[in-house]
Amino acid sequence: MTHRYHAYGLGIRSDVPLPLPPGTGAPNLVLRRGPDREIPHERPPGERLAEVARPDHSIFYTLARGPRTVLRYPGLCDFDGDDKLERVTVHLHPGADDGLLPVLISGAVLAVHLMLHHALVLHASAVRVDDGAVAFVGSSGMGKSTLAAALCALGCALVSDDLLRVDNGMVHPGGTENRLRENARELATGDTYETADGRLALRPRTLVDAPLPLAACVIPRPSREVRAVALRRLGAAEALLRLSRYPRVLGWRDAASMAATFQGLGDLVERVPVFEATIPWGPPFEEGVLADLLAALHPLDQRA
């Protein structure tokens, strides 16, 4: 069965069901499920564009451009595509868990596709606040999805989770679920299910269905030492440095894409305020913390 989606400004056609908004029209990205095959631990031939190794120096994933552009997770799957991963065949290693494919496609594969097209991609979860979007930006474990889910429970609408495309100050709706870690499961009520990578996927009650202006980027800093929410506006140079520390695709090496990302971040910090938010530790959050955070976020689009 073929599924059609529209997410991150892309038309997507996929044999694999994905946690993305439905769509119609001509696809920018086509994902076809190919036959299972052995996925070796060697790198695919060609120029390495990105790679991350485990502590024992084995390859976690690698991206190479040669006769084909291949994103490989050794012993798990290959995403085998054309030059910019516009037409991709998915090959699963025999016996591997195919439940991981939606996780990888809706995260890494879409991020790589966008970066190969020189789009600005943030490692961020975003919600609608008033008439704009607030993006929580950071590395894994900093609370992006947790804060987005908590604010959705207070009435905000989800824009996207873990991956955010920014285009001329606008953000595009993307992932339709918050993927929560074990310590954030108390936020999960309603439509939930376990993902193959051990997260709990939560679909919020309200989703954003059209692009929104990006009102602010917020870098969360959870702290056990504070009792109240505090925001600090970053200057442009510090904001650029901080946002550069949180790439969505780790181990990226492609010079042209890196230059486009740096230019995009430079433009972003000139037009969008960036804040560091010190937030009392949670969940569980003390009473009033989330309401205070939401109150602090409401006027952000007026501080630029």
Rank of each mutant, 00 (worst) to 15 (best):
Asp97Trp: 12
Asp162Ile: 03
Arg179Phe: 09
Pro44Ser: 06
Asp83Arg: 08
His57Phe: 11
Ala296Leu: 11
Thr62Trp: 02
Val166Arg: 02
Trp281Glu: 04
Val30Gly: 00
Pro280Thr: 11
Pro40Ala: 14
Val90Cys: 01
Ala291Met: 15
Ala184Pro: 04
Ala124Arg: 04
Gln302Trp: 13
Leu110Asn: 00
Ala108Gln: 05
Leu114Arg: 01
Glu182Ser: 09
Gly143Ile: 02
Arg271Gly: 08
Ala291Ile: 10
Arg72Gln: 03
His113Ala: 00
Pro94Arg: 09
Leu158Cys: 07
Ile59Ser: 04
Glu238Ala: 14
Pro173Gly: 06
Ala153Pro: 03
Ser244Asn: 14
Thr2Ser: 08
Ala255Leu: 13
Gly95Met: 07
Asp130Val: 07
Ala135Phe: 03
His93Gln: 11
Met115Gly: 02
Val166His: 06
Val218Asn: 00
Ala150Trp: 03
His3Trp: 10
Ile39Thr: 09
Glu182Gln: 04
Val274Met: 08
Leu29Gln: 01
Leu49Thr: 01
Val289Met: 10
Arg227Trp: 15
Arg128Gly: 06
Cys77Ser: 11
Ala188Tyr: 02
Gly266His: 13
Val218Ile: 10
Ala236Tyr: 14
Val16Pro: 01
Ser160Arg: 03
Pro222Leu: 15
Ala50Thr: 05
Ser257Asp: 07
Ala230Tyr: 08
Ala296Ser: 12
Ala196Lys: 13
Pro247Gln: 07
Glu182Ala: 15
Gly175Ser: 08
His6Asn: 09
Cys152Gln: 03
Gln302His: 12
Leu241Val: 14
Leu268Gly: 00
Leu20Glu: 02
Val134Lys: 01
Leu114Trp: 03
Gly34Ser: 03
Thr24Gln: 09
Leu180Ile: 10
Arg203Tyr: 07
Ala135Gly: 02
His172Cys: 12
Thr278His: 06
Pro27Met: 07
Asp130Ala: 12
Leu120Glu: 06
Glu86Asn: 12
Ala237Ser: 12
Gly107Ile: 02
Gly169Lys: 04
Met258Leu: 13
Glu194Tyr: 07
Arg205Val: 07
Val90Gln: 00
Leu241Ala: 15
Val249Asp: 10
Val30Tyr: 00
Asn28Met: 13
Cys77Gly: 02
Cys217Tyr: 01
